[in-house]
């Protein structure tokens, strides 16, 4: 069996497990927790487009998640409860913020790009903190979930679970489609050699910018889903550490692979949950694990998945 076919089989299996999970009588918290992981997995999948395929180390992706969730939360707080309006607003808000900040960030490279995306992420964080009308640093509790075609269907955790699963599948599909397209080929080629790609007549900055925006739109969608799932939005959603966590998910799972980002999200969040059950200070172990993996795997994590890819 070819490597690609095997990869898609693994992905299909993972999604199939997720699809039957709510039907086997697991306790409710497992369903909501899995739904939460799936929403974060959307962000990891989205970040993979920028990081894995585009080679851009964005350390500000949590902001797009947060902006999406705030857009949905504010709409509900203002009485506009339709799910699809919230979804469109969250996606658009995150995309526009990415368009404005990305236009500046993609003109730089390397260390500067990382610092700039981090800074713009932090800006969104502070603005959310300053939104006193919508809870400020305490966050905003939503009195209800969004309505689906005027019904309260999303009140059911299981229904929302399947909505999130559908969004996850759609995100995976979008990223797959884009990476297999001419646009994706240019994006990947520019990661390897931007100068050559420019000499072939492609505007590398523009390609990177649109990848960045698309990635942000998907994170915005994830934000809308999280807001509905938890009925709560807060600046903590866009804390910069979460952006770091997304990177960890993508890298541990395997950047630029078919199912890596999805697996990474589950591994990281399950690991966090597991470690936090063992000790309150689980972050020490998690940090040490990160340092160790980078330092003691030959050629770093990148080398690890390079070897498995070849």
């Amino acid at each position: 069996m070819s490597k690609t076919r095997r990869d898609f089989l693994v992905l299909g299996l993972m999604l199939a497990i997720l699809a039957v999970l709510p039907l086997v009588g697991l306790p409710g918290w497992v369903i909501t927790y899995t739904a939460r992981i799936m929403a974060f997995a959307i962000c990891a999948v989205a970040l993979d487009l920028v990081l894995g395929y585009g080679g851009m180390v964005s350390l500000g992706h949590a902001a797009f998640l947060g902006i999406g969730s705030y857009a949905a939360g504010i709409l509900i707080a203002e009485g506009i409860e339709d799910f699809f309006i919230g979804l469109a607003a969250g996606a658009a808000a995150a995309g526009l913020y990415a368009l404005a900040t990305g236009a500046i960030a993609v003109r730089t490279k390397g260390v500067a790009f990382i610092m700039i995306t981090l800074a713009f992420g932090q800006m969104a964080f502070f603005v959310a903190n300053a939104l006193s009308e919508y809870g400020g640093s305490d966050g905003l509790t939503l009195w209800s979930r969004a309505t689906l075609n005027g019904t309260r269907a999303l009140k059911s955790d299981t229904t929302l679970y399947f909505v999130i699963l559908a969004a996850l599948v759609a995100s995976l599909g979008v990223v797959r489609l884009v990476t297999a397209s001419p646009f994706g080929a240019v994006l990947r080629a520019a990661r390897n050699n931007p100068e050559r790609v420019t000499a072939l007549g492609y505007d590398v900055e523009r390609v990177r910018l649109w990848a960045y925006v698309l990635s942000a739109v998907l994170c915005g969608v994830a934000g809308v889903l999280i807001a509905n799932l938890t009925s709560f939005v807060s600046p903590a959603l866009m804390a910069w550490q979460r952006s770091g966590e997304f990177i960890v998910m993508v890298i541990l799972g395997g950047a630029g692979t078919v199912w890596g980002a999805l697996a990474g999200a589950f591994v990281v969040l399950a690991l966090e949950e597991g470690l936090s059950l063992a000790t309150q200070h689980w972050k020490i172990a998690f940090g040490a694990l990160l340092v160790a993996v980078v330092l003691f795997t030959r050629g770093g994590i990148a080398g690890l998945f390079d070897r498995s890819a070849r």
């Binding site: 770091g244 890298i251 340092v291 980078v294 994590i301």
Partner: peptide
């Protein structure tokens, strides 16, 4: 790569 540096120093 910058990615390794980000991950390790984040750790």
């Amino acid at each position: 790569g910058h990615l390794d540096q980000v991950l390790a120093t984040f750790g």
